[in-house]
Every structure is written in structure tokens, then in C-alpha cells.
Design a protein around this nucleic acid. Structure first.
Lengths: 359, 359
DNA sequence: CCTTTCTCTGGAAACGTTTCCATATTGTTT
DNA sequence: AAACAATATGGAAACGTTTCCAGAGAAAGG
């Protein structure tokens, strides 16, 4: 009663059912006509042998593996995780599996991952790219299909992409803060890999400019996209510029840093400082006060990216990035600036000018 | 100047380098001796043709794909995501790729995923199993290696597993709460798929029993592991038993629910109700007050599971589950019970008995 | 009755590897 | 100098599929 020594192959099934291997293949792939009685016999034999067609054999013959690659900076990041969930959902519905890997912002690692995925002969790759264009350019040359999500590489505008309308989101948040009366708004964001100001930073400046709020370079701070860097940046900004009345965090990491630092500095939110954040992650609602945030449709982005990759194969390459809308979720973390309130109070008393927090 | 019509194969490289395919294979796999000058030529030809060995061809020949499967309930869940990060880290260091999929607690879907992974001929599977033992039993019969993480299936004790010492974690938290003076502690957890009380619930009861706190069945509530169910369960418990002075949430979903519901009911934490939670997710520290939590080493669990799967192939099957330690992270969400404080205040005034919240 | 057109089936040739085996070319030992 | 080991190399056979092609009947049309 020894266990089957090897996993059964199509040949075994064919022999057991007394048919040719071509017939077995037809039964499983629905390739051609098969007699009803024959089909029964094949199915019975297959199930008796616990036969599963080998994706390797099929892949070799078909020259595709039936899987896609997903490359993100970090699977444990809530935004990436949500995006991945979207990709998984779409891939599942289209019958493909997903190979996931994390590049951790390291272009070398990313290139390595892409290389490996190419070896696996994946049908396509969805990526939140780190920076270096080289790896992706090479891939595009080979004709492999790539879709970027959440970010693009300026050097590779021809690669299709799915983005959130971050510019609009930041603008909405900035307008909201200015509308509350804020004039000295700190911007806390991630430095773009290239060094050039990112979309969100540009949108922030543009929005303030449009609203007639004087630019203050000193209030715009960027850091590397790590927890520690974000914290350091937030602490630096808030200590250096105690006169800032609001903080716009361009990502959830920076929002986290803003919350932590204001607590550390004993600043009440929103009485002393208002905080708004891009990315409506789960904890935004759990904060006290709950954080006003720009919701970005991470899951949809993943889903759409996967759809573009797999479904729209034909009409690819043309068109600009797909922009998905964002939504400003107003919660309790933003209020009127303390100077405004102070001056309101002051003017009620018939005095001009507001108090300023210590150095 | 047409682009190369197909991706280059080992034959193309062999022809270009003027050698046999066996030699090319040797160069790339380090299989046997190759002359230095020949190696150079092969490498040059390969890079000129942008040749990448096909994992499909290799996999077919070697009868393994060089990848593993990871099956979790939900990739967007912070615990699962962290676990996945651990798996990815280990897999990367061992040169394997990871196919990830989410079963969303549905045994049928899980079985389907497992089936697909079997077709892919993965080298092994790491799973946070949903419930049904059937799919896994079938797989084990085929000799495929499986490692369970975070959960086990009682019906399949022979499958190796990596667990957090949830029992100890819950005990520590319960002891801490009782030590603060709590006697009426609510338990909020997920119902085990089988219906039997889970490890955490058992540990909770045992701890209370050991500490001489009378059991109160009405304070033990379980729900399905969804956000809504958890919220409903928390709301029900807190409304029904306004006399509960503390809540032990057996997972971060239930912790979230507890925080939200207490805010909804205008209960101050920890003045009116203390909250402690299993799973030290990122937002625990962002809450106000920061949440006391039992940290479980999710990333390590993933890493260890992957190690067990890939490295310890030989000595598998023997031994009990690997138990990783938990740690109680004390923050500000737990304090003395209000009755205790009330009676302390009362006794200071020379009066006995404490106030009780509404009806 | 002989084509023609179906439906059903099996043989065989890829697909791109790895690896066993045989062979040719050296260098080393008796 | 002969024999032998070691080193380099190429040929060919798998590995498990899919699919083209051909062939065998049978039904249908002339």
C-alpha cells in the first residue's frame, strides 16, 4: 500500500482511461470534441489518480506561466497592502496567480526582482516603482507588459499607469485648511527619488499660491519614506516653526509622525495645530481626534492596474495615466488656527494681534 | 531594425557562442567544468541576446518551480501583511519566489487556491488556514509540504506549525487587568471556525479562574472576524453590561471595535473602561490614550514558517508547534476600575459603595 | 456507390531546460 | 611511451504539456 511514488501525469491518466494523451488534454482544456462516454472515463481515471495538470508543462508549451508579478515597496505598508488586495481580487477573477515581492525602495533589489519575474515568464508585472528606470526599460524592450501603479517614472512615460489624483487631493486638503483660516501650513512629505519635488509638493505650492497664501520654503519639509525619517522631519519642523498652525502630511507615514510629534510636544490637536493627511488608512478614524484625511482608492487602483494589464492587452501603450479620484474625509483633526482664534478673541476685546507660542 | 521576435533560448545562445547547449546550461547552473574562455564567450553571447533562462523549462526538468505559496485570510490585514513580509524576507534569502493569495476565511476559496498552487507545483505552502481540513489533507497525501502559521487545524496535528504563544499573551493581559483591580472584564474575540472556544478564550477563562475572579459567561462575547461583526459584538457587550470595567480584545479588529464603541458611548478610556488588545499593530500607539497590547511577532512567525518549510525539509513532521513568545506592551489604555476608584474616593470620605453607570 | 462532411481519436512534434553519457583533449604517473 | 586521470565539450533523452495532422468511422448528399 505504498503511496503513489510520483504525481500522476497526463500519460498515466491516458493509460488508465485507455485513451491517448491528446484526448486527456482535450478533456482538461476543452480544446476539441470528446465523446461523452470517453470524457467520463478520463475524468474518472484522473480523479482516481488525483491528477492535476502541471502548470509547468502547460506553461512551457504555451510560453506563458499564467501568473503576474506584483512589485511594491513594502507589503506591510497599509496602502500597498490594500493595493495588493485589489490586484489579487482582479487576478483571481481572471484566473491568474500573483507573485508578490517587496523592493523596499532599493532600485537594485527592484531590478533583481524584475529579473526573477522575467525568468518566471510572468504574463505581466504591476509595480509601484522605486526609481531606477533601467530595469523597466529593459523589460519593456522584451515586450513584457508592465503597468505602474501609484507612481510613475518620468523617464518612462510610455508605460501605462494607474494613479490616484494626488494633486487634486492635496489641493482639496490645502484649500480646506486655508479656508479654516490657516496661513502658515507645514508640508511634510517624502522626497521624490529623483530629488525633484513630487506631485504632492508641487500641488501644495500651487494651491497655496492660487489662494494667495505667501510661500514659505521653510515650512516645506521632505524626508526619506521611513518611519524614523518622517518622525525626525516632523519633529524638526514643529520645533523650528512653532508658529505653524497646521500640518499637511503627504502620506500616512508622515501623518503618523505628525500625530506622534504633536503629542510629544504637548500640542493639542486641533486647538494648537491642525493635522491633515493624505491616505485614509484604518487608524485615521481611531485617532483622537479622528484624522481628516484624503482617501485614495488603493484597492481600486490595484484592481484597475490588473485589469489594464490583463484585459486591455490590445489597446495598450496609448493614452495618459488613468487618474482615480480622491476624496477629502473631514474628521476632527482640523480647526481654525490658534492665532485666528486668538485674534478673534483679541478683536472682541478690541485689541489687535495674537499670541505666539514660545520659541 | 525589428525587435527580436522572441525571447532568446538556450539554443540561440549556444549557436551565437558556437558551443553546445549543454555548455551554456553548465555556465548558467554551475553544473560542471567549463573553460574560462568558453565561459566568457557564452556570457557575452547571452548578454548580447538578453538571454534569461526560462524557469518553465528548468522547472519542468527539475520537477519543481522554485516558488512557494502563501495563503492568508486577507493581505490587507496588518497582522497577515506583517507575516507575509516575514515570509518574503526569508524566501528572498533562499532564492524562492512567493505566490500569495487570500482566502477571506472561505474554505471553498481556500481549497481552490490550494488546488491552483498544487498545479503550479510550488515547493511548499505556508498557510493561515481557514477551517476545512479536507484540502490540506489531500495535499499532505501528495507529499507536498505545508506549514501552518498563526493557526492550526485540530484535525491535522501532524502538519508543522509556527504559532504565537497566544495563551500566555492573553494570560499576561488578563493578569495585568486583574492586578489593576478589575473584576468584571469583558472578553471580545473571534469565534473559532469549528465553534469550539479558541485558544485565547480558553486562556482568558483559565487565567481568571486561576486568579479567583468569578466567571461571568455573559461577559464573554465572540463574533465573526469581520469589522462589522466585531463592532456589533463590542457595542452589544458594552451596552448590555455597563458594569464591565475592562475589555480584553482578542485581536486588533476587536480592539478597534472596542475603541470605536467606547467613544460612541462616551466612555473615557481608561477612566470609565480599560481596554487591552491582542496584536500590537501600528495604530495602537497612535490612539489616545495609546493602547496597551500584546505584541505578537508576526514577521518572525512568517520568517520561521518559511525557514521550516524550506530549510528543515529533512526533519519535518516531528515535534510540536513552534511557539514564539509574546510581550505585553503597557501603554495608557488601562487603569484601575472606576468602581475601585469610586470606592477609594468614597472610603476617603468615610462612605462605602461606589457609583454605578446608568441603567 | 462514391464522395463529402462531420465527429471522435491517437501519434508525434514542439516548448526550453538539465543531465547522463560518450568523446576529445589535455596533463600526470608509471 | 603507454596508461590513466582529469578536464572540456557535444549529443540526446527526458520532463508534461498542447496542438497540428491524419485517420477512422459514420451520417449525409449526390
Amino acid at each position: 500500500m505504498a503511496a503513489e511514488r510520483r504525481t500522476a501525469t497526463i500519460k498515466d491518466v491516458a493509460a488508465a482511461a485507455g485513451v491517448g494523451i491528446a484526448t486527456v488534454s482535450r478533456v482538461f482544456t476543452g480544446g476539441g470534441p470528446v465523446g461523452a462516454e470517453t470524457r467520463e472515463r478520463v475524468l474518472a481515471a484522473a480523479s482516481a489518480l488525483d491528477y492535476r495538470p502541471s502548470a509547468l508543462g502547460r506553461g512551457l508549451k504555451l510560453r506563458r506561466s499564467g501568473g503576474i508579478g506584483l512589485v511594491v515597496p513594502d507589503v506591510a505598508d497599509p496602502f500597498c497592502a490594500e493595493l495588493a488586495a485589489g490586484v489579487l481580487a482582479c487576478a483571481r477573477s481572471l484566473g491568474e496567480h500573483v507573485i508578490v515581492d517587496a523592493a523596499h525602495g532599493d532600485p537594485a533589489r527592484e531590478a533583481e526582482i524584475v529579473d526573477r519575474l522575467a525568468e518566471q515568464r510572468v504574463d505581466g508585472i504591476i509595480a509601484v516603482p522605486a526609481g531606477e528606470a533601467a530595469a523597466w526599460r529593459a523589460l519593456a524592450g522584451v515586450g513584457a507588459s508592465v503597468v505602474f501603479a501609484d507612481r510613475v517614472l518620468p523617464a518612462l512615460p510610455e508605460i501605462p499607469s494607474v494613479l490616484a489624483d494626488d494633486g487634486a487631493g492635496v489641493r482639496a486638503l490645502a484649500e480646506y485648511l486655508v479656508g479654516l483660516g490657516h496661513r502658515r501650513i507645514g508640508f511634510l512629505g517624502a522626497a521624490a527619488p529623483g530629488g525633484a519635488p513630487g506631485t504632492r509638493e508641487r500641488a501644495f505650492r500651487a494651491a497655496l499660491d492660487e489662494l494667495g497664501v505667501p510661500a514659505d520654503e521653510d515650512l516645506v519639509v521632505t524626508s526619506r519614506p521611513s518611519r524614523d525619517s518622517a518622525y525626525a522631519a516632523a519633529a524638526g519642523l514643529l520645533q523650528r516653526r512653532a508658529d505653524a498652525t497646521a500640518l499637511l502630511a503627504a502620506g500616512h507615514l508622515h501623518g503618523e509622525a505628525a500625530v506622534l510629534v504633536s503629542r510629544e510636544l504637548d500640542l493639542r490637536v486641533p486647538a494648537d495645530v491642525s493635522i491633515g493627511m493624505v491616505d485614509d488608512v484604518a487608524w485615521a478614524e481611531l485617532c483622537d481626534p479622528p484624522l481628516t484625511a484624503v482617501a485614495r482608492p488603493a484597492r481600486d487602483m490595484g484592481y484597475r492596474a490588473c485589469e489594464m494589464l490583463l484585459r486591455d492587452r490590445s489597446r495598450r501603450g496609448r493614452g495618459r495615466p488613468v487618474l482615480l479620484p480622491t476624496e477629502l474625509i473631514v474628521r476632527g483633526s482640523c480647526g481654525p488656527p490658534r492665532t485666528a482664534r486668538a485674534s478673534a478673541r483679541a478683536s472682541a476685546r478690541g485689541v489687535r494681534g495674537g499670541g505666539r507660542a514660545g520659541p
